[in-house]
Write a protein that binds this DNA or RNA. Structure first.
Lengths: 224, 224
DNA sequence: ATGTGTGAATCGGTTCACAGCC
DNA sequence: GGCTGTGAACCGATTCACACAT
């Protein structure tokens, strides 16, 4: 595939981080210089054809009869994902979820340092969370600009989500991750992803219910 | 569509909770007895054709020229999603994330009461979180059975995720929500969904990077 | 002999467009 | 006239299968 084929399918983009993690995970122990699509597929939990197709969108980085050079692949995928530098994030809403996200090391470790915490509640402003002073959401533009923030995380109640999204956009933030259980809309130039815990549980509930059988006790479905 | 068309597409299942929430959200103020696919689509952030197709899988609950009866739709969707009764959950791992999830009201409110918290660390056993005593993971089978738990939430570090999943399955739990940034595999009869925060951020990073342009400063990409 | 890269076939899901019923 | 229900057309993504490079 030529170097000028620059439209990576969305589904592929969503898998690149998984491949990246898989490769990082096989550190030391069996870090051969090279890896086959078969093996990477196994590590990532997909099939080999998908791996090859996905990687082919990045360019022809494999060698027929051999496989992919692990280091080179790591480099190319990191570059493609924009992970060669940090992306500071701001978390909006320091309730339970917001604080947990702030304290959850997983972000900072992976190149997404928490640059700021903001909240609309004046009572929370000044509070220290994870060593960061909570600031007022009105300061967003200044904060975003000063800290070079590109990503905003919405961790507010549902009712505030759209308003917060609007403020993030107004502050020049073009990537948003929404944890609030609410629909938010953003301009086309802004990326929006959502994580909805209740929805995930309800999906599980559906299949659980399904398995229990259409008529499996009106009270509580128990399998045991 | 006949009553015997019982295979709802996965994509539809994933949207039902959103429709449900949309309907619940339009409480009081403009709670007309009936709603059009157009209006529901707007509330849910999809298009009308999709709403109609999705709802048609549940049966023909609409009235041509009129729309869908809101109450009846709510009832049917709740029933279909298995939300007519609670589904107790167990959270495995009471680190930052696990504790936040426990304290986050969103679950209990929506019919997923936290019935138990477990951890592998003996030092954490006995600790109270959200009014619940943490128990040892070895007790899972007894806990799951006693409390009628159907859903397990993995909130451990990546390294423990597969082991925990195996134990949940062994304890008879057939629905799992995995927050650990790791691949876990489960038997075919078990439902597994994953929420991976780092992956979400990396996907945002990709598009952010994309927007910044292939050559937009090797140091830090700033738009302003 | 091995394992990539990729056209072709297939599949699940979305959108269109309109017939059918209120 | 208005809005649902649904075949048909369409589209993105997955899988197949094999030519091709090492």
């Amino acid at each position: 595939m030529s170097e000028r084929t620059r439209r990576i399918p969305e589904a592929t983009v969503a898998r690149l981080p998984v491949y990246l993690r898989s490769l990082l995970g096989l550190a030391e122990d069996d870090k051969a210089a090279t890896i086959s699509s078969e093996r990477l597929a196994e590590l990532a939990g997909v099939n080999a054809a998908k791996v090859r197709k996905d990687l082919s969108y990045l360019g022809s980085y494999g060698t027929r009869g051999v496989g992919y050079d692990v280091e080179y692949l790591l480099f190319q995928m990191s570059r493609e994902l924009g992970l060669t530098h940090d992306w500071p994030v701001v978390i909006v809403g320091v309730g339970n979820l917001g604080q947990a996200l702030a304290n959850y090391g997983g972000f900072t470790d992976r190149g997404f340092p928490i640059a700021a915490l903001v909240d609309a509640d004046p009572a929370k402003v000044g509070e220290m969370v994870h060593g960061i002073a909570v600031r007022h959401i009105d300061d967003l533009p200044a904060i975003a600009d000063g800290a070079g923030i590109a990503i905003g995380i919405i961790a507010t109640p549902a009712g505030a989500a759209q308003e917060v999204a609007d403020r993030l956009v107004a502050a020049g933030i073009t990537s948003i991750l929404n944890f609030a259980p609410a629909l938010v809309t953003v301009p086309a130039e802004t990326s929006l992803r959502k994580v909805d815990l209740a929805v995930e549980l309800q999906i599980l509930s559906f299949y659980q219910q399904q398995r229990a059988g259409p008529r499996a006790g009106v009270t509580v479905a128990r399998t045991s």
